[in-house]
Measured scan of single mutants.
Amino acid sequence: KFGRVHERAEGPAKILAIGTATPFHWVDQSSYPDYYFRVTNSDHLVDLKEKFRRICNRTMISKRHMFLTEEILQKNPNLCSHNEPSFDVRQDILVSEIPKLGKEAVLMAIDEWAQPKSKITHLVFCTRSGVDMPGADYQLIKLLGLSPSVQRVMMYQQGCFAGGTMLRLAKDLAENNKGARVLVVCAESSAIGFRGPSEDHPDNLIAQALFGDGAAALIIGSDPKMGLERPIFEIVTTAQTFVPNGDCHLALHLREMGLTFHCTKDVPPTIAKNVESCLIKAFEPLGISDWNSIFWILHPGGNAIVDQVESTLGLEPNKLQATRNILREYGNLSSACVLFILDEIRKKSGREGLKTSGDGLDLGVLLSFGPGLTIETVVLR
Rank of each mutant, 00 (worst) to 15 (best):
L250W: 10
F283T: 14
D137H: 12
N245I: 08
L313W: 06
E329G: 05
Q91M: 05
N41G: 10
C248E: 15
T374W: 14
I110Y: 05
D88H: 09
H122L: 02
R128T: 14
A136E: 11
R8P: 11
R381Q: 04
G287L: 00
V131Y: 07
N325A: 06
N318S: 10
E284Y: 01
W291V: 07
S86I: 01
L313H: 00
V306K: 04
N274I: 11
S149G: 14
L342C: 03
K49H: 06
Q321M: 13
C337T: 13
G135E: 01
R324I: 08
C337P: 10
Y35L: 14
K281E: 11
D247P: 08
P269V: 02
F67A: 12
R90E: 02
G360I: 00
H299S: 11
K103V: 10
A336G: 05
L79G: 14
A336R: 11
E376D: 14
L79R: 03
A239G: 08
Q308S: 11
G301D: 14
F37Y: 07
D47E: 11
P268G: 14
S149L: 09
G130W: 10
N274R: 08
E376M: 00
G3W: 07
K119G: 07
T59H: 00
A282H: 14
P317G: 06
K1A: 06
N332Y: 10
P85V: 13
P285N: 15
L259G: 12
L73T: 10
E84T: 13
P99A: 14
L333V: 10
A251E: 13
L252Q: 15
V275G: 13
S277A: 12
M66E: 01
L259H: 14
L123F: 05
I288Y: 01
R54S: 08
P148C: 00
A239M: 15
G130T: 04
R324S: 05
Y32N: 03
Y138F: 10
C56V: 05
P244T: 13
L140W: 08
M66S: 08
I72K: 05
D359P: 06
V124A: 12
G3A: 07
N41V: 04
K1L: 06
R255T: 02
H253N: 12
D362V: 01
I294C: 03
L259M: 11
F369R: 15
A13Q: 00
H249Y: 11
G246A: 14
P285Y: 04
R53G: 05
A282F: 00
F369T: 15
T121I: 10
L363K: 11
A272I: 09
D247V: 06
R8G: 04
S334G: 14
H25D: 15
T238V: 09
N325W: 08
S277I: 07
D266L: 04
P116T: 04
A9R: 09
D362G: 01
G372S: 11
G287W: 09
L342F: 05
P99E: 07
I232A: 03
K281I: 00
V131S: 03
H82P: 12
L367K: 15
E10S: 07
M108G: 02
G301M: 13
T323S: 10
D307C: 09
K75N: 04
N245M: 15
R8Y: 05
S349F: 09
L140E: 05
S129D: 12
A239R: 06
I271L: 09
I93D: 14
D47N: 03
L123P: 02
F125Q: 00
E84A: 09
V338L: 02
I72W: 07
A336E: 10
L373T: 14
I345F: 08
T264F: 07
V267Q: 13
A17K: 00
K75I: 02
K319D: 14
I326Q: 00
Q29P: 07
D266W: 08
Y32L: 12
A272E: 06
N76C: 13
T237C: 05
L254W: 05
I375W: 15
L143P: 06
L259Y: 09
G370L: 14
N41Y: 08
G135C: 08
D362K: 00
G353W: 09
H299K: 03
T356C: 07
G331A: 06
P23W: 02
L254C: 14
F52Y: 12
K117C: 01
L286N: 01
H65T: 03
L380A: 14
Q321K: 13
V124W: 05
E7S: 09
S129R: 08
G314Q: 07
D362T: 00
L16S: 03
H299W: 09
G370C: 13
L45K: 12
F37E: 12
T323N: 01
G258P: 12
G314C: 09
H6I: 06
H249W: 09
N83S: 13
H65E: 11
K347N: 05
D111S: 12
T20E: 02
H262C: 15
C337F: 07
G360V: 05
K347R: 09
I110K: 08
S334A: 05
S129L: 15
K1C: 01
N76H: 09
S368C: 05
D343S: 03
E50G: 03
I294Q: 12
V365Q: 15
Y32V: 03
H44R: 12
F295M: 04
A105D: 03
L286F: 11
N292Y: 04
V39W: 09
L94A: 11
S357I: 01
F283W: 04
V365W: 13
R351W: 06
K281Q: 08
A251I: 01
F233P: 00
G372N: 02
G370A: 14
S277G: 09
D28A: 06
K355T: 08
D247T: 14
A17N: 08
L228Y: 06
R38K: 14
V379E: 14
F2A: 04
S149W: 07
H253C: 11
G287S: 02
L107F: 13
M108E: 10
T270I: 10
N303R: 13
G19W: 07
L366S: 09
E97H: 02
I232P: 02
P12F: 05
V236S: 03
E97L: 02
L279C: 01
S81C: 02
A136V: 12
S368R: 05
E97R: 05
A105W: 01
K14Q: 15
S118M: 01
V267I: 11
L380Q: 15
I341G: 11
K355L: 02
V124G: 04
I271A: 05
N41W: 06
I120D: 00
L327A: 10
V236C: 07
F242W: 10
G102E: 07
I61W: 04
T121N: 03
L286G: 07
L68W: 03
E234Q: 05
P23V: 03
K355Y: 03
I288M: 07
G301L: 13
G302C: 13
L367T: 15
K355W: 02
C263F: 08
C263G: 11
R328M: 02
R324F: 00
P85G: 12
I297Q: 04
E10G: 11
L315M: 03
D343I: 00
P371T: 09
I15R: 03
V267P: 10
R54F: 00
R255E: 15
R351L: 07
D132T: 02
A109S: 07
G145F: 04
P134Q: 12
T237Q: 03
L228I: 14
N76D: 02
Q308Y: 13
M133C: 02
T260C: 15
D34E: 10
Q115A: 03
